[in-house]
Nucleic acid binder design. Sequence first.
DNA 1: ACAGGGGGAAAGACCGGTCTGTCTTCCCCC
DNA 2: GGGGGAAGACAGACCGGTCTTTCCCCCTGT
Lengths: 224, 224
Amino acid sequence: MYPEEEFPPASATDHAPSAMPSVVTPSPMVAEAPAPETSAVKSVARIMSVAYELFSRRGVRDVGVNELIERSGVAKATFYRHFPSKDSLVLAFLEQRDKQWTVDAIVSEARRRGETPTEQLLAIFDVFGDWFLREDFEACSFINVLLEMGPAHPLGQASIDYLARIRGHVQALAEEAGLRRPEEFARSWHILMKGSIISATEGDMHAAKRAQQMAGWLIEHHRN
Amino acid sequence: MYPEEEFPPASATDHAPSAMPSVVTPSPMVAEAPAPETSAVKSVARIMSVAYELFSRRGVRDVGVNELIERSGVAKATFYRHFPSKDSLVLAFLEQRDKQWTVDAIVSEARRRGETPTEQLLAIFDVFGDWFLREDFEACSFINVLLEMGPAHPLGQASIDYLARIRGHVQALAEEAGLRRPEEFARSWHILMKGSIISATEGDMHAAKRAQQMAGWLIEHHRN
DNA sequence: ACAGGGGGAAAGACCGGTCTGTCTTCCCCC
DNA sequence: GGGGGAAGACAGACCGGTCTTTCCCCCTGT
């Protein structure tokens, strides 16, 4: 099962499309059971929780609004009061995914596992290795949405933006490690990340190890 | 524009799901204009031609049967006489894509460009570089379908099979080059291919060059 | 050689289901 | 009593798939 813990209420990120409904969450707490609790913000949290679960597992096109509202025990009117359209919910989901998956699950975890910036970079593929082994492994939502909707669609564009953010994290680590041409480094590194994710989707359980090996050579090549 | 030249009528490949309708094409020739020509096989060829165009550009889920039959100037009953379902047409499309794109456009072209097996391997990314520059670049249909339908769906499974075939071509070249552990080599190589395709979809025009550089290190590492 | 018949194909109505999105009704709770 | 939420009907479009009607081409029988 995936975290499904509390998630901070948007907090208006500087960059990236922010389609989160303008709702001020005073105390972030989520009811995962369909118990008919009171209060207003609960609805948004429940919808977001269900959307995260379904969208990340099955993609955004396969999950309809009717299923979303049914699974979150919310009325359709309530859904459309908080989200003007399904696409805006998808946008909010992508933002959530960036916080919960990219930052918390991958980058922070990799930084925690390694001591030096170089170790932290390589630890990304250790985290990937664990992630690939999960039985509920569901690939990268940004790649999924990008390929599902195409790079011209707003949702595809948003996915490209969030993928660029991932590259930004890698570039930051590369700069901390004092590597040469960190932007180029991050682009090459990102090829390894995305390629290993696709290979893992095909069923290659050792894709992370293979990518990590090539990542090591890439680091060597960018040492000054 | 894509080839859209004549394509040999199925010829019943040994491996892979063959959902091509059981039709014996005497002389393969395709009429691309919606001129009301005679004969029966024309219908299948027209449907396949339109399906190749639309599926490869927009994915299989975004293209409906109604649009397919309208664009190919064929009656709905005719479509369903030759293809029992939309999925079977998608299967036929994937088989066509393997012949036309994987084999003819990528592998054969790479073998033509390089002299030694090693050069031919690296030439794959030269071909990719040209491919990424096309304004109608539409990513890899096998990856698209795999992510669109999921690895459990029959179409996803078929895509995995065709991706394995691509890896087989790489492995064959690795064996010709006398590299160590060619199967492992091909899996790592494939990570670079797939990762660069995603990066190109994001807009990185130099993704092929980056992948080629890492591919060179991979070859070095597998030299005996 | 010509009439007749059979079958494939075109056109499109139709079916049940799903999609996103709107609107109404009722009810509960502050 | 008023507002928000639950429930759900509804609209309009589209989905994959079936079936009917009409037509025309070609094959066959005499």
